Amino acid sequence: MGFTFSAKDKSTEKAVRRIARERLDASQALLADPKLPRDALVHELRKNIKKTRALLRLVRPHFKGYERENAALRDAARLISDLRDADVLATTFDDVASRIYMPPDALAALRDRIVRPRAGGTDADKELAGHAESIAAIARRAKDWKISGAGFDALEDGLERSWTAARKAMNAAENDPTGEALHLWRKRVKDHWYHARLLTRIWPEMMSHHIAAADILGETLGDARDLAYLIEALKDEADAADLRARAAEEEARLLADARTLGELFFSERASGLSRRWRGWWDIWRAS
């Protein structure tokens, strides 16, 4: 039925179990496909973990098993974290470097100093096998998850908690826009983006605009975060002034866009948001 609550779900508890198992079963199917390119495989596996963790955050106050299952999902994600197709720092470096002039030899030497290969490498097959074992165990437990509360009551506290966390992360990033602060703000925005997607059907025409705005904000923050990490990596490089200046210029533009959108997007209090969405939920469930 997809990554969304459905009118066919008999309860919120059963919906959470279904959605989680669909994501984890989808990952197991991907892992069983020998024809799937590794970069595409890892990308989809990571997406399924993120979706499942966001789902659990939505019901966190009503799910006693949250800490255990969230930790298990986090650990499963870490098993494949080194198998990404491209290093973000390398990609960001190359992107910014393409818009400045620097002697090729000097640029290559700078890149070698900044973009260092990961120590030791990884055994991809072993990491993927470990990931498969972990998510299979979580999927088996998911069929017995207990969620207290019925209907929107099981979602309201988690929705408000995540919305408030995103607002706090926004304020922290505005005061000190380091790579880590922007990363945290983006994570909290992505949590809410997933929550809105889970609730798409309560009023699709309205929710689609909200989801699109959250997606734009998340992507803008992701690009700004990548530039912030690059700027931090270049801070001790004497010959990187032009590259660092260009990265800072682009980061400032993205941060300005993110601040404007973030202030608009998070202008409403958590209680107001959940009150509106509860009303839409009740009408949807009664129809």
Score class of each variant (00 low, 15 high):
A256H: 10
D112V: 12
E263Y: 13
L73H: 02
A76W: 03
D112H: 12
K187H: 07
V96E: 02
A169S: 06
L56I: 03
S287Q: 10
K190T: 15
E13G: 06
V115D: 02
D95R: 15
A245I: 07
H209P: 05
G151Q: 11
D25F: 05
P204E: 10
W185K: 10
T92N: 08
T260Y: 13
S271P: 02
R201H: 11
E127G: 04
A213E: 09
T92D: 07
T92M: 09
A32R: 05
E69Y: 09
K64H: 15
A26H: 13
D25L: 09
R197C: 04
D94M: 04
A214P: 00
E263N: 14
A248L: 07
Y229I: 10
G262Y: 03
R68F: 14
D215V: 10
R253C: 07
A240I: 02
R74I: 14
L89Q: 09
A165R: 09
E44S: 12
L199I: 00
T200Q: 13
R253E: 11
R225N: 06
A212Q: 14
H192G: 00
R244P: 10
L217H: 08
V59F: 01
G2N: 14
R18T: 07
L227K: 01
W280V: 06
I49P: 01
A142Y: 05
D223Q: 12
A238C: 14
M207S: 05
A165L: 09
E13P: 00
P61C: 05
H209F: 15
F93M: 07
A150P: 01
D153T: 12
L273E: 02
A228T: 01
L58P: 00
R46Y: 07
R116W: 10
S98N: 09
W185D: 00
W277K: 01
A137C: 06
K47H: 08
T164K: 07
E268I: 11
E263M: 12
R201K: 14
A247E: 04
A29F: 06
S267V: 12
G151C: 09
G121E: 08
M102W: 05
E237I: 06
M206C: 15
R188H: 06
Y229H: 15
H192T: 00
R244W: 08
K168R: 14
D33E: 11
P103I: 03
E180W: 12
A247G: 04
G218Y: 06
D144M: 11
L73F: 03
S134A: 15
T12S: 04
A165F: 04
A136L: 04
L234F: 03
G149D: 03
Y194V: 01
D75K: 14
R246N: 11
D176T: 08
E237L: 08
T92L: 10
F266W: 08
G2C: 11
A224C: 08
L221H: 03
D82L: 14
L45K: 01
S274D: 03
G272I: 01
R78K: 15
W281P: 00
R84A: 12
T52P: 01
L243Q: 03
K8R: 13
E251I: 01
L261K: 11
L221T: 01
R57N: 12
D75P: 06
A247H: 02
S98R: 15
A154Y: 02
G262P: 01
L254Y: 07
P61A: 04
S98K: 13
